[in-house]
Design a protein around this nucleic acid. Structure first.
Lengths: 136, 136
DNA sequence: TATTGTTATACTCTATAACTATA
DNA sequence: TATAGTTATAGAGTATAACAATA
């Protein structure tokens, strides 16, 4: 069976991203976390008092779609909102959120390590700069 | 604003794939094609008389989700079904399908060329082998 | 005027379970 | 028994439009 799609780097990119994401999502699921939850919590930890709109811009998530996400993180007790001014709220991790993020960071590190290990050594250093050129 | 996600190759992989797919989808849309339509038609062209189930396995699409896809391609007049045996049907491109695929191939080639052009020359040859190691 | 947070909504993609008919 | 095609359905993820309150 011929597979003409294998000639396209763009197709390899899509399939590789899908495979890696599937592995990561499967590992986050037992922690009660979606991929986007872990991304958001990493970003909130690094930027305390960030707002939902700022967070959405950095993660490339629409403002409207941030609402259920932030609501869920708050309902789980992982983040807290505090009024910044009359219309904005700042987000910060709670103690429970920091503990949950520590768990998430372990499975993320494990998945990233596997990713690197899969790439033949002679290509390894080239992967991230090549990828970053495609979207940054 | 700090962005800890930039340290993760897996995150770069996801964002790069998203960016490239967004560009390709935007170019296929005026042709009345979804990404999966163009993938399926390339595969059918290269493998005349392939069945929907075989196609699904190669594209990593569930058998059940092939039904509306194949129905749509047939309704557009781009593919034809022919009974293979009592339970299977073979798929093949029609003349209209081949013409549409020629259009699709042009925008795909254009998008792939841009992808390559974006990657700094010293990393180019490493990208596809690195990506393929992640899913094949 | 622009931005934040929000509600409502719709569409695509994907996953699962179940059924029929045929190999 | 395993596979092909199919139906129905549900859950994610994502996009758009609109609104009130505030900067």
């Amino acid at each position: 069976m011929k597979d003409p799609l294998l000639d396209y780097p763009g197709y390899s990119l899509r399939r590789a991203a899908g495979a890696v994401m599937t592995r990561l999502i499967a590992r986050l699921e037992p922690l009660g976390l979606r991929f986007v939850d872990s991304s958001a919590m990493l970003m909130i930890e690094a930027n305390p008092r960030i707002t939902a709109s700022q967070l959405g811009r950095m993660l490339d998530i629409q403002r409207a779609n941030m609402v259920p996400l932030v609501n869920r993180l708050e309902a789980e007790g992982w983040i807290e909102r505090a009024p910044l001014d009359g219309k904005s709220h700042s987000l910060a991790l709670t103690a429970a959120g920091k503990a949950k993020l520590a768990e998430a960071r372990r499975v993320i590190a494990e998945t990233e390590a596997e990713l690197i290990a899969r790439v033949p050594a002679e290509h390894r250093a080239h992967l991230k700069p090549a990828l970053d050129a495609l979207w940054r």
